[in-house]
Each structure stands twice: as structure tokens, then as C-alpha cells.
Design a protein around this nucleic acid. Structure first.
Lengths: 228, 228
DNA sequence: CGAGGCCTTGACAATAGTCAATAATGGTGG
DNA sequence: CCACCATTATTGACTATTGTCAAGGCCTCG
């Protein structure tokens, strides 16, 4: 763990995160009780069941929000990208795990102080509402995707989504990118087993839709095949 | 369709809906541009793809939020209970269908006017944020449930959830209740087929967990069996 | 009373899961 | 820098669960 004061001036998500809705003085106020923190891959930011006393904005990297059964199998409920907000403002206990997928940076806040800021600054409340609505849409879209599709379709759609997330230009998938998730994590996200994910990736390579570049690298050859 | 002015004074959800955060004058302001509307079972409130110019609070009854594939199979993404809010404030087009499951009553608002009220009344923004956060939690819980459980467990958990929703006392499932969903809707919600749902309900009856009372009626005999 | 829509049940097929062995990768320490 | 080890991924054989197709029953509403 590492922690230091905020540096909003150089923040890469300063125009997109919830705090972008604040003006200079308000943002400075919020910055006073936030801490910057670095996370290593696999490091847990929040753990289900623990006291829910913090929240955070993701600045760089990627997080997962997940739930684990009694038997230890993990179900990934959401991926968090930069500018995303994590933490449940109204629950006494954290109900899901939040874990870094890659080296990541967050702005960490005390939940109590953040909630006070939400009361004080209506623009912050509205910005969070907007973000929460988008997360809700994302959760429902994922549910619609996982619900009624074959393993092949899920893996294909996931690869396409990751290619789009990896690209700088919106709506144009990157031709080549590295998966930020292990097979186990892909399986947890898509509601499949590791073996099935592996087989489907192999099948997609055999059918010429993609090429693998090492374990995590993916090269799109025929993106259209991923969509069906 | 039926439509008439609001009657907040006698509204059964006036203490729990988003508008409960407003004081008398503010609520009266909101009420001026809301309309009361009755929905019959199966009636569509909002349709995916159409202009997203309205939003609503559910007063009585039950709604479903769903998405339909190209081939027409429906995936239910959420059930909406009284005091729930439906509508996406920040999207230009509606992205999901919202349909009444039972005879229902909603307060219907123009999205533009509702958004203006959210700007004007910070308490409304915070109340919607709270509700949106809860919906997000609900969506993720459903995803966690559907993700890694057998057909039997899904149906059992669903029946238990419905029994709890049907009960007045919280955390005590009703011993007897009517399902507000058809088999097709249950299948769409749980990510199964109609046949599988039917078989699992039959199996739960054979194993003594429940008894069926007509097509939609369920009597809990051994609720513990539903949880495993 | 008849018709149509749900629901149930059965037989079979297909998809994904389980168990198990092997291969590849990446990190660590000599 | 290389070798070894632990972790992760791939592949195969087999099983089990669920989906598909089809037929028949039940209830509800005209």
C-alpha cells in the first residue's frame, strides 16, 4: 500500500470523474480529505463484509467488483475503468469485494466525509447520480449478455468489448491488445468455467477470428466473427 | 391507458419514494407536472428504442425491466416494486422495455421537467442517488445469483424472494402467495427456459418444499429446502 | 361449450461442467 | 543468465445438466 495527497491538477480523469462537476474551490475542499493510493494487481481495495467506511475514484488502471460464494468461486459483477466510482454510500457494510486487476491508482475518501460533500455540493450528488445510472445500465447490459448467450458468444462479445476499451478512438476496437484478466477472471465475469473459456478462445483462434500473442495478448483478425 | 392529476396526500408510497425527500411546497411543485396513470398487466410503459422523454415512480403493482434479443426471447433484468423509480435520466433513447406485470399505478413525469426538478432540489438528487445505488446493488445481486447456480437453486431462491416480497413483515416470507410472473417471465428472469422452470417447480413440489395452489399460487412447506 | 393460451411432461440432443494430465509462462534465487 | 518452481492455461475424455422438440392437459375467457 502507498498513500499520498491528491494532485488534481495533473489528474488524468479530472474532466470525467464525479469530482469534475465541482468548481475549483469545491474540488480543493474535497481534495483535502482524499488520499492518493497505488494498488498492485490482485490487491484488495475493499473486502465484502468489512466496515464500509471508504469510497474511491479510479484514476488509472482497472478494478473488478466481485462476490464470492461459500465454496470460494468468484463471480465478477463489474469491471471499473478510470473515472469510475467505487463504494456504496448508503450501506453500513461493504457487500462486494473490490480488487485491482492491474497496477492502479485511486483517490480514496472517507465515506463519511464524502457523504458530507454530497450534501454540501448538489453538483456532486448529480454527478454521482449520473455515474450510478450508467453503472446500472452497464450491469443490466452485462446481465442481458450473459443471460441468454452461448459460451462462444459470451467470449466473443467480451473480447470485442475489451478491444473497444483498449482503443483510444471510441467505437473502433484496437487491433491488438492485452487482456487485463486471467482466464479465471474471464470465467467469473462470463459465468463460465476456466476450461470452457480456454476452449472457446482456442476455437476462435482456429476459426480465424483472432490470434493469440502470448497468454494475454489478443490480435483481432476477423472482428465480425466475434459478434455472432 | 388512463391519466389524471396526482393525489400525493393519499399516495401509499409517499414516505418511501424519491419524492419523499421533498418538503410540502417542493412536492406540490413536482406534483403539478406529474400525471397519475393506470397500467394493465402486459401493458408497456416505455419501449426500448423509443424517445426517452419520460420517467415514473411506481405507486402500486409491479413492473419488469427487460431486453429482447433479435429472435424475440426476452431477458428480464429487474423487477420494480412500489416506490421504485423507472426511466433513465441521462440517455437520449430508452434502452430497455418497461412493462406492467400486474395492474399497476404510476406517477408519470416528463423527463425534462423531472431533470429540472433534480437541478432545483438537491434533496431529490440525493434521494434518486440512493435509489439508483440500491437498484445497482439489486442488479448485481441478481447477477451473482443467476451466475453460478443450478436451475434448482435459482428457482428456489426466486420463490423465496417472492415470498419475502409478498409478506408485509420484512424478513418473514409469506406462507402462501401468488406469483406475479408467468413461467415465461420467470424463465426470462432466471436465465432458463420455460420447460426447465416448470420441471424445477414440479421437483420442488415432489420433494416437499412447496405446494402449488392453482397455476400461480405457491404455498411454502419447507422454506429451508429452497435455500440450498 | 369451445378455443386459445399457459403449463406440464417426456424423449432426446447438445452444450457446458468435471476430473485429470500436460504444457506454457513468469518469477525467484542461485 | 539460467534453471527451477509455482502458477496459469490448454487439451482430452467423460458426465451431467439444461435446452429443444413435441404432445397433451388444464385453466380462463369469450
Amino acid at each position: 500500500m502507498s498513500s499520498s495527497p491528491l494532485a488534481c491538477a495533473t489528474c488524468p480523469v479530472r474532466d470525467r470523474a464525479a469530482c469534475a462537476a465541482l468548481d475549483g474551490a469545491e474540488r480543493a475542499d474535497l481534495a483535502r480529505f482524499g488520499r492518493h493510493r497505488l494498488l498492485s494487481p490482485g490487491e484488495t481495495l475493499f473486502a465484502a463484509g468489512e466496515d464500509n467506511d471508504r469510497c474511491a475514484t479510479l484514476v488509472r488502471g482497472a478494478l473488478k467488483i466481485s462476490a464470492s460464494d461459500a465454496d470460494g468461486t468468484e463471480r465478477i459483477l463489474s469491471l471499473v475503468h478510470p473515472a469510475g466510482f467505487v463504494g456504496e454510500l448508503f450501506a453500513p457494510l461493504a457487500r462486494f469485494d473490490v480488487v485491482a486487476l492491474t497496477h492502479s491508482e485511486v483517490c480514496l475518501f472517507s465515506r463519511r466525509e464524502y457523504e458530507a460533500a454530497v450534501e454540501r455540493y448538489p453538483a456532486l450528488a448529480r454527478a454521482l447520480l449520473r455515474r450510478s445510472s450508467e453503472d446500472l445500465f452497464g450491469a443490466r447490459s452485462l446481465m442481458a449478455m450473459v443471460g441468454r448467450h452461448s459460451a462462444r458468444e459470451r467470449v466473443g462479445a467480451f473480447l470485442l468489448a475489451m478491444a473497444e476499451a483498449a482503443s483510444d478512438s471510441p467505437c473502433h476496437p484496437a487491433a491488438r491488445f492485452d487482456l487485463p484478466l486471467s482466464r479465471a477472471e474471464m470465467a467469473g465475469l462470463l459465468g463460465l468455467t476456466i476450461e470452457t473459456v480456454s476452449r472457446q478462445v482456442s476455437a476462435l483462434e482456429k476459426s480465424g477470428a483472432i490470434r493469440r500473442r502470448g497468454l494475454r495478448g489478443i490480435e483481432l483478425v476477423d472482428a465480425a466473427q466475434l459478434g455472432n
